[in-house]
Nucleic acid binder design. Structure first.
Lengths: 356, 356
DNA sequence: CAGTCTATCTTTACCGGTACAGACTATAGC
DNA sequence: GCTATAGTCTGTACCGGTAAAGATAGACTG
């Protein structure tokens, strides 16, 4: 299959290659009559439109933006919250005709995707700031928007008020009178269950984890409460084992604050398995307001974030950065911190009235 | 920021441009000493490695493969099952250094991603076979693997036994003695709730829908049962309204077979809202064996598919196709239909023993 | 010591487009 | 009638690499 190129069409029609190029890319540069003739010949020859790579080389733009993922995609995408974020980004980008490339931050083999994948810009999503891949993005001079992580100096970050939300969650259970409170989270290694260990440094660099922990502690410290830390290894496995271990400790906690709704959901399942009533025996609070939160019985009290708004904000900021490279008169997009909202539902209130 | 190119490095070191290229791409083509010198100069000048677009143009490969999505990504990715499929594909591809580009099948504006995005191959995931985007992929001569959809003649398809699974689900509830059975699905338009309408043509072309419906009917027809069709508009909204309407009909069904676990989960929530016991008042069967199925109380009887195996199979088939283009002696990968398995749990059995 | 390798580097020729600066009309304005 | 102006089209010069074959020289073979 000999490839049909601009050149072959040009020869057939009897015009210059440039004119054929314009027929596709800049219709205003030639007469309609000629354009139609060119397009007809192109169709006849089976021309597929300008070659993406060649155009990309010539113009310096690729038509795709990358999303840098820290974790293995298997895990990240399995999480509905991350996936919805990605979906919102993709949809916000679609009208501009930009596709979205998933770029693994962790290199396997010699290919370094953050260096070798063609893209016009990138969104770094909840990455360890020390990842070499981030360096590559910057060295390439690509516009980058940082989501759920700190931006380097001058960078654009889109975050949510993780700390405030976690603090509100902690205050909520404290206000309900709970004193034995567990913090159900990740980042303490591979052992599921209650832990007295240190948060792993790499986990501490994940902003979402660090900030939610900080918020919880702010809320608990004020009441002089020392929490029970419970670890869930950061894999895709069901968190029920860790939850079971938590519920088996002497002086079992009466309330548990969870890093995410997905973890909270497993906690609720474990509570049911153990014959414990929620919220009567155990109050549970999640984070994210995942669809799970509404599907669970009782409905889950949680800190709502608008993950789709976050995705849209990130996409818009990145679009502005990409456009700003071409037109320096445009103002740079600003970092934003989106608000969160504590949603009190049946998993803590117990009152049917609040459970709608 | 003047770009550092191979040429500038070559001049600085005093060798040909080709040698510099080889220093990066084919280390065996030059002496180690020279290579080190070149890399040193490259580092000093801030060279970032070969430009992806230029390399892509010269070699004819892009280092990315596309995944064609029919629905808006916002919806597709929000579904944990789709998302896990995508994650499995991405992880299977990662060792080959291939990135993954999400390609919207529905064009917005003049850009046709399936035509304009650079890629080495594509996975079409549960698309309407009549989508123009599929044509573009074929006209480009790209290797394509079709997942959860029929492949065109000679194409490679990875599917699951949707029909057999649905049939097993139907037989299961029939065997339990149910006679008033609802089929909770999508594809009948925008009205939620029981319907007597026709399945929309575009929905009928979605293999997953068509096959699961066919399987259900095979199972019910054998028992002479006429089901109640219940429609859930194909949006991201919670399906509880449709479920509520279903439970409000006179002669309320005693069993409901659902297109997916996500829908089943909403049905169970609606049952709880209506004060109905599962499985006592209403038996519920899902499809997919989504993590939800295990988290729900009672646990959801469902048809298990291994979505990650599906993703891996698709990725492997595509890798084989891509490799086969270069080396025609390789055998073409074959279409596969992966098995499914009915998982009987508490939402139909009622027996505690089966609910573990 | 001629002949043949092998390793190393260079030369030539693309890959398939687009940007930008003319050049050549035809029309309009005065 | 002569010059602006706009509308079309062409020519040239890149974009930044890689493939494949050729050149050169020292090592090895018999």
């Amino acid at each position: 299959m000999a490839r049909v190129t601009l050149q072959s069409i040009a020869e057939r029609v009897g015009v210059s290659r440039m004119t054929v190029s314009n027929a596709f890319s800049r219709p205003d540069q030639l007469s309609d009559a000629l354009r139609e003739r060119i397009l007809a010949v192109a169709a006849e020859l089976g021309y597929l439109g300008p070659d993406p790579s060649a155009r990309s080389l010539a113009t310096g733009t690729t038509g795709t933006i990358g999303v840098l993922w820290a974790k293995e995609l298997r895990y990240s995408l399995a999480d509905e919250v991350s996936a919805r974020f990605l979906g919102a980004v993709a949809d916000e980008l679609a009208p501009s005709g930009l596709a979205l490339t998933l770029v693994p931050a962790i290199a396997e083999g010699s290919v370094v995707p953050a260096r070798d994948v063609a893209m016009d810009g990138a969104i770094a999503f909840s990455c360890d700031p020390e990842l070499p891949a981030l360096d590559w993005l910057q060295r390439r001079g690509l516009p980058v928007v940082y989501v759920d992580m700190a931006a380097p100096r001058g960078g654009v970050a889109i975050t949510i008020d993780d700390r405030g939300g976690a603090r509100a969650a902690a205050r909520h259970v404290v206000a309900l009178g709970h004193r034995r409170i567990a913090l159900f989270t990740s980042g303490f290694g591979d052992e599921p269950g209650p832990t007295t260990g240190q948060l792993l440094p790499e986990a501490g660099r994940i902003r979402v984890i660090a900030e939610r922990h900080a918020g919880w502690l702010e809320g608990l410290d004020a009441a002089g409460i020392v929490p029970l830390w419970v670890n869930q290894p950061n894999t895709y496995a069901d968190a029920r084992e860790a939850a079971r271990a938590m519920l088996a400790v002497p002086d079992r906690p009466t309330a548990v604050l969870c890093l995410t709704d997905v973890l909270a959901s497993s906690v609720m399942a474990a509570a049911a398995d153990a014959g414990l009533g929620v919220p009567g025996d155990l109050a549970v609070v999640g984070f994210d307001d995942h669809p799970l939160a509404l599907r669970s019985r009782p409905r889950l009290t949680t800190v709502r974030q608008d993950v789709e708004a976050k995705g849209r904000a990130a996409a818009q900021a990145l679009l502005a950065l990409v456009a700003g490279r071409a037109d320096v008169t445009l103002s740079r997009p600003r970092s934003r911190r989106l608000p969160v909202q504590l949603e009190v539902r049946g998993s803590t209130s117990g009152g049917v009235q609040l459970d709608r």
